[in-house]
């Protein structure tokens, strides 16, 4: 595969091409499977480096030390203010850490899925198989996953549209991510074997609606910024389509 665009992949993934070239490349990706795969690999690598690299957060002590350096002459009242500020900061950092570094495995799994959903939202190539036809999307997974499932048949007046699907991994287990759209919102449906992944989302979650349920031997999740009612509706459609 000697595609002339291969040398520009890094620039494209970093958003460093001029806008016309960026658009031209995006168009080229529709037709070139090799470049499309390379772009996905580069994006995945960037994402892995970004997530792994943001490893250290400045401790509260550093914030207070730096503020003291910037304002070296503070009186007794200032100390009180800094003490309160440091306490607030510590609280915020602890809250932040509890969100960024969840301790429980189930939280970690759900965080991975939310992260996967956000990556999909931000990606120029959100799906590996681009089709609104379930009879195209479902066969695409054959041979790629050790299980099968039924995407729901969507009625003509359904508010949901199937956008496509991709392969995902969570806790080192392979799964499917189906991407749907409702109005201006996107919904990710993640499907895994329940023997690999069966964690339930916490009652209170992030800015996203996260639903999880087990049906037969499969574990399903819906992650979306759409309303809980939309997530419920899609859950019902999936449950209906996968009744045995």
């Amino acid at each position: 595969m000697n595609c002339e665009w291969q040398e520009k992949i890094g620039l494209y993934v970093d958003g460093e091409l001029e806008p016309p070239a960026q658009q031209l490349f995006a168009g080229h990706l529709q037709a070139c499977a090799n470049c499309s795969d390379s772009v996905m690999a580069q994006e995945q690598l960037k994402k892995a480096i970004r997530l792994a690299g943001k490893r250290f957060s400045a401790p509260p002590q550093l914030y207070s030390d730096v503020r003291r350096q910037i304002h070296p002459q503070t009186g007794g009242r200032g100390w009180l203010q800094w003490g309160l500020a440091a306490a607030c900061l510590l609280l915020l950092v602890m809250l932040g850490l509890s969100w960024r570094f969840p301790l429980r495995k189930e939280d970690s799994t759900i965080a991975q899925l939310v992260d996967q959903h956000v990556t999909m939202l931000a990606s120029a190539n959100p799906v590996d198989v681009l089709s609104s036809n379930k009879h195209v999307v479902k066969p695409w997974y054959q041979g790629k996953l050790p299980f099968t499932f039924n995407p729901p048949e969507l009625a003509a007046d359904s508010p949901f549209t199937l956008l496509g699907g991709k392969l995902v991994y969570a806790q080192h287990a392979p799964g499917a991510e189906l991407v749907y759209q409702v109005r201006q919102h996107k919904l990710s449906v993640f499907i895994f074997q329940a023997k690999d992944i069966h964690d339930q989302p916490p009652a209170a979650n992030h800015a996203f609606t996260v639903k999880g349920w087990q049906q037969g031997e499969l574990q399903y999740y819906v992650v979306t910024d759409a309303s809980k009612e939309d997530a419920d509706r899609l859950q019902s459609l999936l449950q209906e389509a996968n009744q045995t």
């Binding site: 595969m1 291969q6 040398e7 992949i9 890094g10 499977a33 090799n34 470049c35 499309s36 795969d37 390379s38 996905m40 690999a41 580069q42 995945q44 690598l45 392969l167 991994y169």
Partner: peptide, 10 residues
Amino acid sequence: VISPDTPELA
């Protein structure tokens, strides 16, 4: 330039 082999992405 990353080789486009799909197993790499996986």
